[in-house]
């Protein structure tokens, strides 16, 4: 399969969420990922975007670029780029998922999903931009989620 790339640029605002997820979803569906994997990918895209919408541009507006690329053997790379404050999601602490209702804090759960569900996640800071790549193997190579 030849490399195929598509991208969109959206306002870093919650109102861009559904459009952005639909964009990734439609690209991913065409690569033949199954519906379960599709949902996991949608989830991770939402979590990364909402984090950017909420924290990347405090007190000002900004943009987010989302690109999807299909590589050899059906590999899917989703790259999410913002020009906001530096933030490496991979450096954040995992939440305590065994805490009771009273003790439970919700923070960090979205990022935890991304770390758990994507085959590979890479972060780099380049030209004052946060660049996050989520790389997934094609459906046949995906590992089952059973944790």
């Amino acid at each position: 399969m030849d490399d195929n790339v598509q991208n969109i640029v959206v306002l870093a605002h919650l109102s861009s969420l559904q459009k952005s997820v639909a964009f990734v979803s439609s690209f991913t569906r065409n690569l033949g990922f199954d519906s379960r994997r599709l949902s996991e990918i949608e989830l991770c895209v939402e979590e990364v975007l909402v984090n950017i919408f909420n924290y990347a541009y405090p007190g000002e507006s900004g943009e987010v670029e989302i690109s999807c690329r299909s590589g050899p053997e059906g590999t899917l790379t989703i790259e999410i780029v913002d020009s906001g404050i530096p933030f490496n999601i991979l450096s954040s602490d995992d939440p305590d998922i065994s805490a009771s209702i009273d003790e439970r804090h919700i923070g960090g759960l979205g990022i935890y999903f991304v770390k758990q569900l994507m085959d590979r996640v890479e972060y780099r800071r380049e030209n004052n931009k946060n660049i996050l790549s989520m790389i997934n193997n094609s459906t046949d190579m995906s590992r089952p989620v059973d944790k």
């Binding site: 949902s39 979590e47 909402v50 919700i106 759960l109 979205g110």
Partner: peptide
Amino acid sequence: YISSAGLR
């Protein structure tokens, strides 16, 4: 579908 916002 549910995301962390829903769990929150």
